[in-house]
Structures are given as structure tokens and as C-alpha cells.
Computed example of a mutant assay.
Amino acid sequence: MKRKLKEQGEILIRLGELLKNGYTLLESIDFLFIHLLKGKDDLRLKIIKELQNGAALSEVLLKLGMSNNVCAQVYFAEKHGLVFETLLDSGEYLLKRHEDQEALKKVLQYPLILISILFLLLILLRKMLFPRFFLLYESLGYQPSTLIAWMMNMIHYLPHIMFSILLCILLGIGLYYFKLKKLPPLIKSNLLLSIPVICHYIRLIQTHFFSREFSYLLKSGMSINEALLIFENQSFRPLFQAIASRVRKDLYNGLTFPESLQSFSLFSTEFLTVIRHGETNGKLSHELMFYSDFCMKELENRLNKWLKIIQPSVFVFVGLFILSIYFSIMIPLFQVMQNF
């Protein structure tokens, strides 16, 4: 079972600090079970036994409930040697993501409460108040204008529309988990990248990961082919496993590194330009790290913009809808009163 982001971050930071201060891996894991993983002696004994038998840290972390993304980063760190640095960076990143999630919850909490109240109000209006108004209008022979009639119909059918949208979202999530997850990684990636809004975020997240880990591997003295082989041999990120396998074949067939990457919709033209420039000046590892940082900052900027847009947009929607309810009820009443 996957642990929460905050718990994962705290475990990784504590483990990184212990390794940084000279503790062995066995001592560090044992220390974690004393403080952050209390009351799990069976798991502790199992993990320690696996480490004594030569299990990799990335495999151990997976059994401790860490995400595949974290385990993949640790797997690459075991190859390029920056283990405790990677643990600390990953832990801080997860804690930052936890803070972002909490901020998003706070931003959405009040609007969601308003929308829930609005939804209940719609149901009450539809079931109790509107039928009486319609009977009153019919008895008085009142015919509402086109705009008022449209507003009343919208209020009448909006619960059905909202329920249908929610049902479509749930069906979409279900389709993803039961259908898309079974597709090959490259096909699944291409389908997700065809979705207009989320494609930019997927591309930034994946490019950030690839640039960062590939840069570390190159800095440790590996060639491009050796780094690709490590990507191909890992199983935590199937997408990059498939990409690395195809790129290695392309390199064997005479294509250059950027020419091969160009065939994947995951990588932008800008990213390919960075690779070409890095190969030309011999600083590919440095430029990949720079671009990785750029992707992360761009992702944070985009998310912050959305946070600033979401709450005001919801408030405007709720306000306009309340006004439409008011006008759809009061304007016909005023018109009826004027006729008498």
C-alpha cells in the first residue's frame, strides 16, 4: 500500500540524513523502524534480511510503500552514486507536493461547499418551489419571455447536467484504470498527450524526470548508450524503459540521439534543441540538468496560475447562478403584478 506524500517525504529525508552522516544502509533502515515506522517488527526483520541478502535500496523502498517514481530515482542514484543527495531531493520534492495539495484543498474547500449547497438548493427549487410557480403562471395565463424561460429551464435541468458531468468524469477515471493501464506504455503516453489541457503537464513532468536522471548518469562518466541501458533495465518507469529500448535500437541503426527522440511525442522541439546544443559544446549533462530545473519551475508556475484562476472562477459561477435564480423567480412575479 502506497504511503501518503508527507510520510514518504519524511522517510526519505530521514534516510538521506542518516546516510549522509555516515550510517550504513542497514543501520539507517533499522533507525527508521525505531522512529518513523514503529510497531512493524515483522516488516523490519523482512527488510533487514533482504538487505543482508543483497537487495537494492530501490526494491526495499518499494516494499516500504514508496511510489514507483521515488523508487526509480533511487534506482538511478544507485547507478550514479548520489544516493543520499537523491533521497534528500526526493523527500523535499514530495513534501513540496504535499504542501501544494494542501494549498489546493484550501483553495477548493470553500467553493466546493458553496457548490454542494447550490446543488441542494437546486433540488429543493426543482422539487418544491418551481412546480408551484409554474402552476401559478399557468393559472394566470402568464407566458415568460424567451430569456426567462431559458433560465428557468436551465435551473430545472442543471442537476441532471451536473450529475451527468460527474458520471462522465467517474467513467473516464474507471476507463483509465481498467483499459489504459493495460495498454503498452508508449500507446498510453500518446493517448494522454492527445488531451489538450493535461498534455503540457505530462510533458513537463516526464521531461523533468528524464533530463534529471539522464544528466546524473552522464555526469558519473557513462556514455549515452550506457545510460540508456540502465533506463532499459529498470522496471519502475515502464514508459522510459520502452523509450530507452527503442532509442538504443535507433542508435545501433545509425540515427543520432536527438533524431531518435524526435519520434516520440513526449519530447518537445525545445528539449531536442537543448540536447543538440549540449552535444555540440560537450556539456550535455549540464544542459540536461538546467533544462530539468526549467521544467520544474515551469510546472510550478503553471500550477500556481491555475490555483489563482480556479477559486475566482468558481465564485463567479456561483454568483451568476444565484443571480439567475433570483431573476428567474422575481422578474416573472413583477411582470404578473404589473398586469394586475
Rank of each mutant, 00 (worst) to 15 (best):
S164K: 10
K308G: 15
L284S: 03
I34C: 12
S215R: 03
T146Q: 13
M330K: 09
G141L: 01
V316D: 01
I329G: 03
L57T: 04
F240N: 00
L191R: 10
C295D: 00
N190Y: 09
W150E: 09
G91N: 01
R246M: 12
H98E: 12
E138N: 10
Q311P: 04
Y23F: 12
G254T: 06
E213M: 13
L5E: 11
F321I: 05
L320A: 10
A72D: 04
L266P: 02
S313W: 00
A72M: 09
L323H: 08
Q234D: 04
Q8K: 06
S260R: 05
I205P: 07
K40N: 11
F340R: 05
N190M: 07
I34A: 11
S145M: 01
F334W: 10
L108K: 08
I11V: 08
S164L: 14
R14C: 05
L32H: 03
F209R: 14
I202D: 02
T207H: 02
T273L: 14
I230Q: 12
R97W: 13
L135P: 06
F210Y: 09
I325L: 06
I309P: 07
I115H: 08
K63S: 07
N153E: 15
S194G: 11
L193A: 02
L88I: 15
N304V: 12
A72V: 00
Q8R: 07
S116A: 10
F76S: 05
H80Y: 07
T146S: 15
P312D: 02
G22V: 03
L118N: 06
G39I: 03
L323T: 13
K308A: 14
I224R: 01
K106L: 10
E10M: 08
E279G: 09
T269E: 14
Q101V: 15
Y291H: 09
R14K: 11
P312Y: 02
R44I: 08
L193P: 05
G16F: 01
T24A: 02
V83C: 03
Y176Q: 10
K49G: 11
F134K: 13
L26I: 15
